[in-house]
Design a protein around this nucleic acid. Structure first.
Length: 680
DNA sequence: CAAAAGACTTAGGATTTCGAAG
DNA sequence: CTTCGAAATCCTAAGTCTTTTG
């Protein structure tokens, strides 16, 4: 099975999305609605632990609980020594101020305000391994229970109405809700679904329903469409009510207290049951993702915290107190058997610190990357096959920003690869192609089954090595048969502490942004044009990292709209110019103050319109260039935010133009600490 | 030692919200 | 005020890398 017809099955999508990886500008790396809704909401309230009364004493529990113990142990990181020393005194001041706030004030003053300003980055870190000293939360919010369909909504089997048991009906609704999706027509999806559905049936149902193709879900499907339509048509008041309920839920369950601070939780709602849809050609698509019950849940919190109560009549699987991990809640998912977690928001200290650290590691790589590059170039000549393979793989990881490529269990997931797991069939060698020598053509599915397609000229030695690695191998054989990620990472660890394959992606992404910004920013440009330059720099990184997206469904249309706006603006500009001209002529004849003034104002109008036109044109360029490229992923995960902050400061660009509210929260540390001269 | 389990980051698509145009 | 497209947010899958287990 391995590797056969890799693209035959899934290439259609990928084909459409194929983008040119070699943009000219890119230089790589130095190289019923209402009533049912109400029921849902009430359910939340009852299935979660009882709401706390506002002014209960435990309300300030989180100020009291951790006590003075939280004096952090000193563990300055190599890279931030100076920073920490400089800010030490400041940090202490902040802290002591916190503590002196009188009791009464604490409750009245919204904690929000106070907490949002908390600058965790000015405080010392915990010793390695310890993630927190105090943790209190209210546990997860469970999915609303299944609500049986109204009697008049029918399911038909073999043309005849059939009333399903509640359990079977619930699973049937999952399928019905997906009826419009292409994947309900896929063989694997249908097979997996049917198998799991039958498990939920009563024995009578099982004996009657023997073929999925005889099942008619269309009525159910129509019902759900009508429901969602009705949802859209709800009155403002009803919508408002739902919104308020969500806010209440967020307020109650969306936050935890970790070491004196109230922090936002990322995913406090348990994933509802449904049909699994993996990405790409996934062997498990269509399987039933079962409902998670309190009995599945492990709670993690402090011993001395108020332990969250399980829903009435239920128990937690376990309550543990492990401060070596960051999660609050975990459970085992039934599709892959992997563990899922509830963790904190990216704005939290625990996530932010890690993020910061990630970029510091990448900056350390910057200091030794030349040495490492020389080293792997030497290793291309090694007598040992293992060393050569390692060196070539590392070259790809560095030059092309490929992912490490762990082995995957065959048949458990979609067939995708990264660097170490590349197979012979994924590359083609061209001694010469389009006037270039030693070209390697890559064509494989990477993470999320996104296609990576690239033709890269490589050094002769690399090329010769690849020929060697491919000798006497079948297409489905591993290209690097003596290598895996663990061997590679072990080697990297020896070259630099904390170095792993993914650090190269972070490093190359960030350094590329910095370079591109230097290259592309024109000091004379106005703000929109500078932002276009920023986006182009960002885009260079996204292309390097192969961050693709499906072109938005409305892309063509929105492009047309924008074009017509531009045309209209152009006309408006022509008109304004004509008016200016005649006003000038008029002024020349009349030579009075009033007509002079008219000329001035017309001039201004022309200027204004010119600027607007320019803005629109820039927008159009930006959007066109972005058709199949996703900027968000690199912005959020690969680009040292301090580079962007510094760039904004340097050119007087408001940070809001680059980062939205959520992103500003995530990168608060960088926004606070980076000056305009920051160098990655 | 290798395989499995565990913890955490990275990822694109779906859904919801927002804000400008009509 | 309504509509519509874009942006923001949500969702959870799919990776990486570390730790534990046998």
């Amino acid at each position: 099975m391995k590797g056969t017809g890799l693209f035959a099955s899934s290439s259609l999508d990928s084909e459409k999305r194929l983008i040119c990886l070699t943009l000219p500008n890119l230089s790589v790396a130095g190289f019923q609605e209402t009533s049912s809704l109400k029921v849902e909401l009430c359910f939340f309230a009852s299935f979660c632990s009882p709401p706390r009364i506002k002014d209960e004493p435990d309300d300030d529990g989180f100020y009291a609980s951790p006590k003075e113990d939280s004096k952090p142990l000193k563990r300055p990181r190599e890279d931030d020594d100076i920073l920490l020393i400089l800010q030490d005194s400041k940090a202490k001041k902040v802290k002591s101020k916190d503590k002196k706030v009188p009791e009464a004030d604490k409750r009245k003053k919204p904690k929000k305000e106070e907490e949002q300003k908390w600058k965790w980055w000015e405080e010392e870190r915990y010793p390695e391994g310890i993630k927190w000293k105090f943790l209190e939360h209210k546990g997860p919010v469970f999915a609303p229970p299944y609500e049986p369909l109204p009697e008049n909504v029918k399911f038909y089997y073999d043309g005849k109405v059939m009333k399903l048991s509640t359990k079977a009906e619930e699973v049937a609704t999952f399928f019905a809700k997906m009826l419009d999706h292409e994947y309900t027509t896929k063989e694997i999806f249908r097979k997996n679904f049917f198998k799991d559905w039958r498990k939920e049936m009563t024995s009578e149902e099982k004996s009657t329903i023997t073929s999925l193709s005889k099942c008619d879900f269309t009525h159910m499907s129509q019902y759900f469409k009508a429901q969602s339509e009705a949802r859209k048509q709800m009155s403002k008041e009803e919508k408002q009510k739902i919104k308020e309920e969500n806010e209440r839920l967020l307020k109650e369950y969306g936050y935890c207290v970790m070491d004196n601070h109230k922090e936002r939780i990322a995913n406090f709602k348990i994933e509802p049951p449904g049909l699994f849809r993996g990405r790409g050609n996934h062997p498990k698509m269509g399987m039933l993702k079962r409902r998670i019950m309190p009995e599945d849940i492990i709670i993690n919190c402090s011993k001395d915290s108020k332990i969250p109560a399980p829903p009435p009549g239920h128990k937690w699987k376990e309550v543990r107190h492990d401060n070596k991990v960051t999660w609050l809640v975990s459970w085992t998912e039934n599709i892959q058997g992997s563990i899922k977690y509830i963790m904190l928001n990216p704005s939290s200290r625990i996530k932010g610190e890690k993020d910061w650290q990630k970029y510091e590691t990448a900056r350390r790589l910057k200091k030794c990357v030349d040495k490492i590059r020389n080293q792997y170039r030497e290793d291309w000549k090694s007598k040992e096959m293992k060393v050569r393979q390692r060196a070539v793989a590392l070259y790809f990881i560095d030059k092309l920003a490929l992912r490490a490529g762990n082995e995957k269990e065959e048949g458990e997931t979609a067939d995708t690869v990264g660097c170490c797991s590349l197979r012979v069939e994924h590359i083609k060698l061209h001694p010469e192609l389009d006037g270039q020598e030693y070209v390697v053509e890559f064509d494989f599915l990477g993470k999320d089954s996104i296609r990576y397609y690239n033709k890269v000229p490589v050094e002769k030695r690399v090329f010769k090595n690849l020929q060697l690695f491919m000798e006497n191998k079948q297409p489905e054989d591993d290209l690097f048969d003596r290598l895996n990620t663990s061997i590679l990472n072990k080697h990297l660890q020896d070259l630099m502490e904390g170095l792993t394959a993914k650090v190269f992606r972070t490093y190359n992404a960030s350094i590329t942004l910095q370079q591109q910004l230097k290259e592309l920013t024109n000091p004379d440009d106005n703000i929109p044009a500078k932002i276009l330059s920023y986006n182009r720099a960002n885009r260079a990184v996204a292309i390097l990292c192969n961050h693709q997206r499906a072109p938005p469904k409305t892309f063509e249309k929105s492009m047309m709209n924008l074009q017509s706006k531009i045309d209209a603006k152009k006309e408006q500009l022509a008109d304004a110019r004509r008016e200016l001209k005649s006003a000038k002529a008029d002024a020349k004849v009349r030579r009075d103050e009033k007509s002079k003034k008219t000329v001035e104002s017309k001039k201004k109008a022309v200027q204004r319109i010119e600027e607007q036109l320019m803005k629109l044109e820039v927008q159009a360029t930006d959007r066109e260039e972005n058709k199949q490229i996703a900027l968000g992923t690199s912005k959020l995960n690969y680009l040292d935010p301090r580079i962007s902050v510094a760039w904004c400061k340097k050119w007087g660009i408001p940070i809001e133009k680059i980062y939205n509210k959520t992103q500003r929260e995530k990168f608060a540390w960088a926004i606070d600490m980076a000056e305009e001269d920051y160098e990655f």
